[in-house]
Nucleic acid binder design. Structure first.
Length: 112
DNA sequence: CGTGTGACTAGGA
DNA sequence: ATCCTAGCCACAC
């Protein structure tokens, strides 16, 4: 495999994000072994479109800001989805980010 | 194979 | 704390 492999790996990680939790692009990239390809992770999410099992709304930037909300249908679908999971969002930013942050490195047992 | 682009991030002013 | 800059990597053309 080749090209799609990276995207598929991204999806596999995103799919494992628990309900009500979120993570960052950089963390996902790090899990994949390429911490510098965080931008590409977001790029991959564009194609995630085809995979409804990928909870793209649970992926935000490292500050807990919904940078990708503009890529969702409507104007604040991403925010609505997160709020429906119990997230507290204000000004496009997750207020309880630290509490709901899900670190794939820890949770997947890849670290420590 | 070179160039441009982006749902990012870290570091410096 | 906020704003700006440069580096990154995978992909489309």
């Amino acid at each position: 495999m080749s090209t799609n492999d990276f995207y598929l790996r991204v999806y596999e990680v995103v799919k494992q994000i628990p309900y009500g939790r979120v993570t960052s692009y950089g963390s996902i990239a790090k899990v994949l072994g390429t911490p510098r390809s965080s931008r590409t992770v977001g790029y991959a999410m564009n194609a995630a479109h085809n995979d409804p099992e990928v909870p793209a709304h649970r992926v935000v930037n490292r500050n807990g800001v919904l940078t990708g909300k503009h890529h969702f249908p409507g104007t604040n679908l991403m925010q609505q989805l997160l709020e429906s999971e119990g997230q507290i969002i204000e000004e496009d930013q997750i207020k309880n980010f630290k509490e709901t942050y899900w670190d794939p490195l820890e949770e997947l047992g890849l670290q420590e």
